[in-house]
């Protein structure tokens, strides 16, 4: 019997409907495998991160707090900006910013430091980007209760129903981080200094993002241009939802979501195009 190279061999017997169903089942199995892998890798990343340190997981709380202390000292004492409830104001923005910046700063070395995994056939490198995004998100979520307690108990600001919009913001943020990280991680395989360049850009972006200042400092004419930066819009939205307890600016949030999606598509297309070369260059 001749070997049929055609993938649709045998369709005649079972029919197209069954084929579609089989394909769907195969895809579901594939998806659950990937999710399982993702979950295990996130767990590994999360537990290994603080291995060998005395304070362990406590660092995930201490580092943002220490960072907060510096910013509060700098912009309340040295160069006063005159924003009330400043520590809570900064902390609301600092947590998502830390998530974003630590993801991007580690994105570059992601593929290179997991060389052994990537060289395994069948291992999709892009899952590492997801792992990095999610394990940093976990750190954010660990500290989130501290922020909420700080806002509610220390500053007496009530949480409003708008707080429930937080998951939406998190999803947009995950999409953005995943897309940009994937692009950076792929490019860094070919140019090894991309990670350093990205870290400098992240540092510059910090000043273009309203983490330690309020957007009212920006003149009307520049506002639209300023809000084309999706990170700035997201940070403002977090602040609106958690700190001020009001609705985010929907128009800008929509643009930011579209841009995040776009970054995701661009990142993924670029990654798919370079995928077959990654293993050789790594």
């Amino acid at each position: 019997m001749a070997i049929k190279a055609d993938g649709l061999a045998g369709v005649g017997k079972t029919g197209y409907l069954s084929l579609i169903f089989r394909g769907f089942r195969y895809y579901r199995g594939f998806l659950s495998h990937q999710l399982d892998l993702l979950w295990h890798l996130v767990k590994r990343d999360f537990t290994l991160r603080y291995k060998g340190s005395v304070l362990g997981i406590l660092w995930s709380l201490l580092l943002p707090l220490a960072q907060l202390l510096v910013l509060v000292f700098l912009f309340q004492r040295v160069i006063p900006l005159g924003i009330d409830a400043y520590p809570a104001f900064v902390f609301t923005a600092l947590l998502p910013w830390t998530w974003f910046s630590s993801c991007l700063n580690s994105a570059g070395s992601l593929f290179l430091s997991n060389r052994d995994l990537i060289k395994k056939p069948g291992f999709p490198p892009c899952i590492l980007v997801g792992v990095n995004t999610l394990s940093n998100l976990l750190l954010f979520l660990v500290v989130l209760p501290v922020l909420v307690i700080m806002i509610v108990a220390f500053y007496g600001k009530p949480l409003t129903p708008y707080f429930l919009l937080l998951p939406l913001l998190l999803v947009v943020n995950v999409v953005l981080i995943w897309g940009v990280s994937l692009f950076v991680a792929t490019l860094n395989v070919f140019y090894r200094d991309i990670q350093y360049i990205v870290s400098v850009f992240v540092m510059l972006l910090f000043y273009l993002t309203p983490v330690f200042y309020s957007t009212s400092a920006i003149t009307e004419g520049y506002r639209f241009l300023y809000n084309l930066n999706p990170v700035a819009v997201l940070i403002q939205s977090y602040r609106a939802v958690i700190f001020f307890g009001r609705a985010p600016e929907w128009g800008f949030l929509f643009i930011a979501s579209v841009l995040s999606l776009l970054s995701c598509v661009v990142g993924y297309v670029f990654y798919r195009k370079k995928l077959h070369e990654i293993v050789d260059y790594i």
């Binding site: 140019y191 200094d193 400098v200």
Partner: peptide, 12 residues
């Protein structure tokens, strides 16, 4: 295998 090479020393 770098993108900006030694320019990095200036950039930072």
């Amino acid at each position: 295998q770098t993108f900006v090479g030694t320019a990095w020393a200036l950039l930072q």
